Simulated assay, not measured.
Amino acid sequence: MSRTDETAGRGRRPGGPDTRGEILRAARESFAGNGFAGTSLRGVARAAGVDAALVHHYFGGKDELFVEAMALPIDPRQVAATIVGGPRDELGRRIVTVFLGVWESADGQQRMKALLRSMVSSDQVAQLMRDGMTRMIIGPVSETLGVPDARLRVGLVASQLVGIALVRYLLELDPVATTPTAELIDRIAPALQQYLTG
């Protein structure tokens, strides 16, 4: 038996033209079925029929794979770094500015609408996003607050942002839907800051 036959017999194959796509397909299925914590790079590689080294080659790690598989318009880790990388008394403004910035871009709005609709209609997608966002955004932001109820504070901020997204971009309810972004930021930032540090 040739080396190629042995490799095929083990269910692994070298990278091909659509290897990346196969890995993403397997990752989406795994994230949806097993959640963030229950998904491993080895398991995804097995399901895609490739060597685990190829998953590392294309995506680097599970966080990167999650971002790609969910087709997020932003990298949550960069969002967290932007949010925590500045004065504490401007946290609320940075959060709402980044959040609305994603929604206000044409590509970002399209993807975020699809994601938000999926979260509302699918318990699996909602759980997956909770797991991923907790690990990559809520956890790091909570740690910077240094208070016992930090997770609750950040959760309340998240509730405000999801509400704004629903009213402005999905329901398109006026006047919130037509208020200029800069004015919305000015009005929302103090409320978020109160949640975080008040």
Score class of each variant (00 low, 15 high):
Leu128Asp: 01
Glu29Lys: 04
Gly198Lys: 04
Leu128His: 01
Ile74Lys: 10
Arg168Ile: 00
Ala8Thr: 09
Ala71Asp: 15
Gly60Cys: 01
Gly132Tyr: 04
Leu192Pro: 04
Gly43Pro: 08
Leu192Met: 05
Leu173Tyr: 13
Gln194Thr: 12
Phe31Pro: 10
Val147Glu: 02
Met129Thr: 05
Ala191Thr: 08
Val157Ile: 07
Pro17Phe: 12
Ala32Trp: 07
Met119Gln: 13
Ser2Lys: 14
Arg153Gly: 00
Gly101Met: 01
Arg25Gln: 15
Val96Gln: 02
Gly85Asn: 12
Tyr169Ile: 02
Gly33Trp: 02
Leu192Asp: 03
Ile137Gln: 09
Ser105Gly: 15
Arg25Phe: 12
Gly108Lys: 04
Ser30Gln: 08
Ser40Gly: 13
Leu24Ala: 14
Gly11Trp: 06
Pro73Val: 09
Val67Phe: 09
Asp123Ile: 04
Val50Thr: 11
Thr19Asn: 04
Val167His: 07
Gly92Trp: 02
Arg187Ile: 08
Arg88His: 04
Met1Glu: 06
Leu170Cys: 05
Arg130Lys: 07
Pro17Asp: 14
Phe59Ile: 08
Thr178Gly: 14
Arg93Gln: 09
Thr134Ser: 14
Ser121His: 09
Thr179Pro: 03
Tyr169Met: 00
Met133Phe: 13
Val44Ile: 10
Met119Ala: 15
Arg13Lys: 15
Thr4Lys: 13
Gln109Phe: 00
Ile188Trp: 00
Leu170His: 05
Gly9Arg: 15
Arg13His: 13
Ile164Cys: 02
Gly38Arg: 06
Thr181Leu: 01
Ser2Glu: 13
Ile23Met: 11
Pro148Val: 01
Gly85Trp: 08
Tyr195Glu: 05
Asp5Gly: 11
Pro140His: 03
Phe36Leu: 12
Val125Ser: 09
Leu128Pro: 03
Gln124Ser: 09
Val84Asp: 00
Ala45Gln: 01
Val162Asp: 05
Gly146Ile: 09
Thr97Ser: 15
Val84Phe: 03
Val98Arg: 12
Ile23Leu: 11
Leu184His: 03
Ala45Trp: 00
Arg151Val: 13
Leu65Gly: 11
Gly21Cys: 10
Val96Leu: 00
Val176Asp: 03
Ala158Cys: 03
Gly163Gln: 06
Ile83Phe: 02
Ala37Asn: 12
Phe36Asp: 08
Ser40Asp: 05
Gly101Thr: 08
Lys62Asn: 05
Val120Arg: 14
Val125Gly: 10
Gly146Pro: 07
Tyr169Pro: 00
Glu64Val: 03
Val141Pro: 06
Val157Gln: 04
Asp18Thr: 15
Ser30Ala: 11
Val67Cys: 12
